[in-house]
């Protein structure tokens, strides 16, 4: 299975894409892919710092509330409930200054292409009464097949929209703070924070390695050379990551780190956060009734 939702578009275009012909080379495609990932994260962070409804909420209320909706959309057997949650999510996106057509549109097309292609055969393969017949191919679309495929796509679209809504309205550091107070182990939160922080460093390094290789590249690489270039870059990056981890450990120790992490907790949960959380949970509960 491939990748889906918004990561779909951080991936480089597929082979044969006119924008990047094969001759343009696989090194470029890796440079583009890594740059796009960096860009995607930067854009999410930018939206998360806009002024909007969800941006004003405490990240804990948002995390729990959106998770409740994801659960409701996943647990219900009624399509109408999935549809309602989807509509509410879009409404919240509009109120939170999330660019619906670009940011969410990307998510939707990504899911449609990925989950859609998986759900498609179910239209014909699920046994049941035929609804219509595809001309020429002579395949029957069955009623249960149609229902099963719609359920899969509907659920995938709705849950992906909700997950995107959370990241697009919450800066990563706020998410980490929320996790701290939601009883996720401190160590896990610290490691997640450091992973995210060094992700950008390593993405940048990897892009530079590919770029450097490309600048020295004359002519086309054959397939084996490409493989070699990719795995050697991964190897260089691995060595660099481990060396960095040693140095970071020293830097942590120099400032008193002894294996146990201590964090500041700023727990300010206001009335409006409580109300918002209650509203989220009430909608989810209604959907499951």
């Amino acid at each position: 299975m491939g990748r889906q939702t918004f990561a779909w578009f951080t991936q480089p275009p597929a082979v044969g894409d006119p924008r990047l012909s094969k001759a343009a080379g696989f090194l470029e495609r890796n440079v583009v892919a890594l740059a796009k990932t960096l860009d995607h994260a930067a854009r999410a962070d930018e939206t998360a710092r806009r002024r909007g409804l969800l941006q004003k909420l405490d990240p804990r209320a948002k995390c729990v509330g959106i998770f409740a909706w994801i659960l409701a959309a996943a647990a219900t057997s009624r399509l109408a409930v999935v549809g309602t949650i989807f509509a509410l999510a879009v409404a919240l996106a509009v109120l939170s200054a999330v660019p619906v057509r670009t940011s969410l549109g990307r998510v939707w097309t990504g899911v449609l292409v990925f989950t859609g292609s998986i759900a498609l055969p179910a239209l014909f393969l699920t046994p049941g009464a035929p609804v219509c017949r595809i001309p020429l191919l002579e395949w029957n679309v069955t009623a249960p097949g149609l229902l099963a495929a719609t359920r899969l796509v509907g659920r995938a679209e709705t849950t992906a929209t909700l997950a995107a809504l959370l990241v697009l309205t919450t800066p990563w550091t706020h998410l980490l703070k929320a996790l701290r107070t939601l009883r996720v182990p401190k160590t896990a939160v610290v490691i997640l924070g450091m992973t995210h922080r060094y992700l950008f460093l390593l993405l940048g390094l990897a892009r530079d390695y590919f770029e450097a290789r490309r600048s020295r590249q004359v002519g086309r690489l054959d397939n084996a050379q490409r493989r070699h270039a990719a795995t050697a870059t991964a190897g260089v990056l691995l060595g660099r990551s481990l060396a960095l981890s040693d140095e970071v450990f020293m830097a942590m120790r120099a400032r008193g780190f002894r294996g146990e992490v201590h964090l500041l907790q700023d727990a300010r949960f206001r009335t409006r956060d409580g109300l918002a959380l209650a509203a989220f949970v009430a909608v989810a509960a209604l959907g499951l009734l």
């Binding site: 995210h196 400032r255 002894r258 992490v261 201590h262």
Partner: peptide, 15 residues
């Protein structure tokens, strides 16, 4: 190595 500048400066005193 911390997620924000504030966390960075607070790291030493916290430890």
């Amino acid at each position: 190595f911390n997620p924000t500048v504030f966390d960075e400066v607070a790291f030493g005193p916290l430890q």
